[in-house]
Amino acid sequence: MTTTLALPAAFSDLTPFAEQWGQATENDRSRIRWGASAADFASLYAAVMPRLPDILEELANCTLDGMDEAQTNLFNLAAAFAEAAPHHELYSGSADVPFSFAAPRFQPGHGDAASTATLLR
């Protein structure tokens, strides 16, 4: 039996995208993004972009260290969208930034820290 990932009730329709894209850390989100197709980016964008004002309004009422599980899952989906949107809007669906350095060679010092960490220094 599989457990469905929880989201706040108003966003339950985004559950498949939270399950496909949502990750807590930049390194884990990058791995998913690097393997995504133009169609993947397009469907994420089509699903999340119209809901972005509501998502940001929901998260504006949450502190980084005070989210419940459903809110954290919504945060992780929003984080993935925040990093994936340019690939649809600017890079024609390419998982790579065109004409650029190989992204996996960049080492984020914060890469394995949860993006909800209150302190990133």
């Binding site: 998260l59 949450c62 984080a79 925040a82 990093e83």
Partner: peptide, 15 residues
């Protein structure tokens, strides 16, 4: 960031 929406916006600008 003082709330989760601000952090999400920072993640986008950072990206």
């Amino acid at each position: 960031a003082r709330n989760a929406a601000e952090r999400i916006a920072q993640l986008h600008v950072n990206a």
